[in-house]
Structures are given as structure tokens and as C-alpha cells.
Nucleic acid binder design. Sequence first.
DNA 1: AAAAGTTTAAAGTCTACACAAAATGGAATT
DNA 2: AATTCCATTTTGTGTAGACTTTAAACTTTT
Lengths: 234, 234
Amino acid sequence: MTQPNETTSYRDIKETVLARIRSGEWQPDSLLPNEQDLALEFSCTRTTVNRAMRELADEGFLERRRKAGTRVLSAPQRQARFTIPMVRDEVEAFGGIYRYALVSSVAGHAPDWLCARLALKPDQHVMHVRCMHFNGNTPFQYEDRWIVIDSVPQVVNADFASIGPNEWLVQTVPFTNVELSFLASRADDSVAAFLDLPIGEPVFTGERITWLEGQPVTFAKMYFAAGYRMTTQF
Amino acid sequence: MTQPNETTSYRDIKETVLARIRSGEWQPDSLLPNEQDLALEFSCTRTTVNRAMRELADEGFLERRRKAGTRVLSAPQRQARFTIPMVRDEVEAFGGIYRYALVSSVAGHAPDWLCARLALKPDQHVMHVRCMHFNGNTPFQYEDRWIVIDSVPQVVNADFASIGPNEWLVQTVPFTNVELSFLASRADDSVAAFLDLPIGEPVFTGERITWLEGQPVTFAKMYFAAGYRMTTQF
DNA sequence: AAAAGTTTAAAGTCTACACAAAATGGAATT
DNA sequence: AATTCCATTTTGTGTAGACTTTAAACTTTT
């Protein structure tokens, strides 16, 4: 089958299984042969079959339960994976020149809505950073971010004129937990001004809340320039 | 360490490794010990270490290259996984009552823009289906879909009055390849009317192109009701 | 029947070992 | 100095076999 070597790899098995599902030979909801039998059919070990089937299950094609066996998922609850790149990388992937500009950086008390959103104690200190990301001279993204000073005390010494708050945070507190949302909002006057849009224009918007060991670290709103679309294939 | 059994599992290893990364013991960009040595440290086989590290790499924490070894990713290019549910499931997850309504279903020639988008031959036949998804009596999503008849001939007999085109397609041609985009668009008069919005209002919009074995199957635009947000955690 | 307990089939994971494939870093050559 | 070549290291994947865990299906008891 495969020229280079003679053994059946877990990749081959995955392909074969997928092909059978696609061709309708293995109908949705139907029970598949067990690993032992498949190993026999493909003349390989159960270990190899196991890996193939496990990965197909991870990818959302199969459902596996001990004793019950493996079945084809009828409504393939497929999940899209969106890679969330750094803005810089995204711009450069577009073939553009990334440029960053700080708009303002002010320490102060957290406003009520932010306290509610991040479960902060009243009047906890936060750093409010607003900045722009450009593709050449074209606005690409306007970022409006709040950073909880108690969670990241070093932030008071960060120089956000020379490095974006997101890049700084990724370096300083990597591997946080994130809640990420996307929505369509309307450009208010400041967003419109920064992104060079008419007021009221639809803006693709991301909201990101980040936690480190249960402590709220940052809340960010990211407003994308007109025409932006987030795309994935699967 | 773990009470129930005495062996170190790949889960334990994953946790330990993640903890070391988070604690800063293993800095971003630093090279990790090789699998052999880790196996020794955790007193298990290299196979087990391999699985742990492979999964961490899949999850975007590590980068592995043969001969070069394993290193901690500095800019953890973490990917968000959004589960793309059926509209019905999404509404019901909200605790709502799902209701579906067909707006129109017409066969005809594909318009130019669609031919370009799907690489169709000029004037290929398509079915144009428009429909609404409700949460109770509240509009939830307006769907505007084109289905390539040559790719799915059975579609001419489908009864889209009783089943949504997406559910029908998932049953009929499951396991297709998908390109999925999200963007913010402005409500034109028909979208505004269906979703009960002012004209020009920002609308969170999804676009989905589906292929089966390289053949274009369907193009869909999904307009979400006001206030919709797509959320994930990781 | 309904509930509780038991058997058992299937996936889940681990060990121990082997060979394959890639790619790095240095050596040899131009 | 650049290029080509090669040895070696590290991950990638396979085999063979054992034991574990889950939960479905059956059996017994209430």
C-alpha cells in the first residue's frame, strides 16, 4: 500500500477509517469492529489501531466508550480550531509591516463595570492601556486593555511605549487561562476615529479575559479594522 | 504521589511539565531534557514520556524537532477551539425552544459572484435556500444558503419546510471539508427585517464553504441576532 | 418489577524494546 | 568561504504483551 515501508501505520488506518465513513460503508451511529479485530484486519498491533482511533475520536469523528465500543458520530460536533496569533504575526502574515503605537497608559481605580466583570474588589488598582496596531500606515486593530496591578505588580514599570501590552503580558505571565469572545459591535466615536471609520460602522470585536491561577490579570477589547475576517479550515 | 496506583502516568507527566513551565523553572525557549532522561527522572518508559510531550506539543505548549529536541514555546501560539454546534443545539443550550422556519427555496443558475466564490462553471445549477432559526419567538439566526445541485443531486427532493438545510446536509453528506469565517457585517434591509433590527445595525456573521472530495457543496451566510457572541475558554 | 450485585467485553494505559526518519552540527571538500 | 557530505542525536512510530478501568449486560435478591 505505502511504498517506503510495508507496515500499516496509524495514519493509514485513520485514512482508511475516514474513507469508509465518508463512503457510507460505516454509517453514522453504527458500531465499529473492536480494536482487536481491526488490528487483525490491518495486520498490526492493537496499540497502533488504538492510536488511530483515539486521534479520530479527539478530532470529533468517533465516540468511544469502554465496553460499549466505538461508533461513528451522527452529528459530527466538529470543532473549529482558530489560531489566535499575536497581532504582529498576523500583520506580517498578511505581508505587511507591523507598527505599534501607544495611545495612553494610565494607572487608576477600576471602574465599576470592570470590577463586576473581573470580580475585583471595589477600587482595586488597574492600568488602563490603549494602543494601536498598524499594517504599514493602515490601522489594523485598536486595543483597549485593563491590567490588574495586584496580579502583575511589575506592570507599573513596563514601558508600553516600546512594547505592546499583549506582547509584554505574554512574556511576563505566559500560560494563563483565557476566555475569548468575538462579537460585532458598532464603532463609537473613539473607535471610529482610531480605525478611520464612520461612527456607527460595524466592527469585528474580540474580548479577552485572562486569569493566572484564578487571579484576574487583564481584560482587553480588540477592535479590528473594516473588512477583517477570522478564518479557519477543517 | 498519586494514591490509586504507583506508576507515573502520562497525565502526571503533563501536569508536572506544565507546572514547571508555569513556575518558570523551564523558561520559554529553553531546551528540555530529552525523552530518555525524562523517562529516567519519572521512572517510566520513554513511550509514556513521548505521549505526554506529544500531547503538550499538540496543545501548543511545546515545539519538538527531531535531533533538535523539545523546547518551550516562547510565544505560546495557543489555538482557541470553538465548538461549532448545530443551531438547534445552540438554542437549546441557551435553555430555549428551537423553532425553524423556511423562508424560500428556489432552484436556478448560480449568480456570478457565487461561481467565482466556489469555482463553479458558469450557470451551474444551485438551490437557494433562505431560512430562520428562532429561540422561542425571538429571531436567533437568519441563514442564506446556496447548495450546488451537481454535487448533491438529492437536494432537489429535500423538504426544507420540515428540516433545516444544514441538518439535512449533515445527514446527507457528513464529513466534508469546511472553510469557516466570521466577520462583522451591516444589516441590509432583508437581514434587518428577518432579525428585527434597524437597517445598518452591526451583525455578527458567519460564512461557511463546504467541500466534498474537492467538489464545492454549499455556501452559507449565517446572520446572528443582536448581542450574539461566540465564546470559548482555554 | 425494581434494586443490588456480578460478570465481562471493550477501551485505556503501561512496559520493554526495536528500528525509522529527520535534521543538526561538524568534517571534508571544493 | 561556501558547499557538500556524513555521523549522531533526538523524536517518531511500530511490535508484543500485560494489567487496569469503565460500564454494559446479565443474575440474583428483594
